[in-house]
């Protein structure tokens, strides 16, 4: 009987194609925070809008598999599935290429165990055809679980942007994330954005300094933000957009 001689340790064929799928992407920014509720999703969506408005080709990937919400932030309808053409083409929303598991769960609950979440991430990365992008922004789940860490493990040279708030609860949590990121050899953290802060706080500045990471800037708390979520025109008039635009102009590459 013939014997298969090539049975490598990693038997998942999907991993072989992920690099090819991401090959046309120049910069990958996972938006990370181990603490929930610090504004990762809005920062991801608005940063994608800002970069798009500056003329870049931008993608937004929601990797919060069990609780996706980037589509809500951008006002994307998930009723229509992304088109298929030799793979799945991300939906175009406001000029941004957008992909989320929400298209396939139709916003219903998707209760999954850790390895199942990993399976979904691999499937999405293997079938999504991004094409050429200047930036891929990834909205990641909170915590330090499989899916949060997978958000950086499948990508070549990802540059995480870490989100914190001035709350001591967030600081403690984000410190743990930074310790983990610090242990990954060669990983360049883009910096920390301090969200929901009218002024830069000493706590977050010191945290950035402790890990030799750039403090990128603060984003004021905008009490009206919930009223404009899902409306990209109105999102462009928020304090969040203005503050994040300043941060992006200073830190995220030259004008095209």
């Amino acid at each position: 009987m013939s014997k298969a001689i090539f049975m490598p340790k990693e038997k998942d064929f999907r991993l072989a194609v992920i690099d090819r799928r991401l090959a046309g992407i120049n910069e990958i920014y996972p938006i990370m925070s181990s603490k929930g509720g610090v504004g990762k999703t809005l920062i991801s969506a608005v940063l994608a809008l800002i970069l798009r408005d500056r003329g870049y080709k931008v993608g937004l990937l929601d990797l919060d598999i069990t609780n996706p919400s980037a589509h809500t932030a951008l006002g994307v309808s998930i009723k229509e599935l992304p088109e298929e053409e030799k793979g799945v083409k991300p939906l175009i929303a406001d000029g941004i290429k957008f992909m989320s598991v929400a298209f396939y769960t139709q916003d219903k609950p998707l209760p999954l165990r850790g390895w199942e979440i990993d399976n979904v991430i691999r499937e999405l990365l293997a079938i999504t055809i991004w094409g050429d992008l200047d930036y891929l922004i990834i909205d990641t789940p909170p915590g330090l679980s499989d899916e949060a860490l997978d958000a950086i493990s499948y990508f070549r040279s990802p540059k995480p942007l870490v989100v914190a708030t001035p709350s001591p609860l967030a600081i403690n949590s984000v410190r743990r994330l930074l310790q983990l990121l610090n242990d990954l050899n060669g990983l360049k953290v883009l910096g920390i954005v301090e969200n929901m802060a009218n002024e830069p706080s000493k706590r977050v500045r010191e945290l950035a300094e402790a890990f030799s990471i750039k403090y990128l800037g603060n984003v004021p708390l905008d009490p009206t933000i919930d009223e404009v979520i899902g409306d990209t025109s109105k999102l462009r008039n928020t304090l969040l957009y203005v503050a994040l635009k300043g941060i992006a102009e200073k830190n995220l590459g030259p004008n095209p």
Partner: peptide
């Protein structure tokens, strides 16, 4: 069709 793309959606 939804499960065809993401089999784990069966849990949904």
């Amino acid at each position: 069709e939804l499960i065809h793309f993401v089999p784990e959606a069966v849990h949904t």
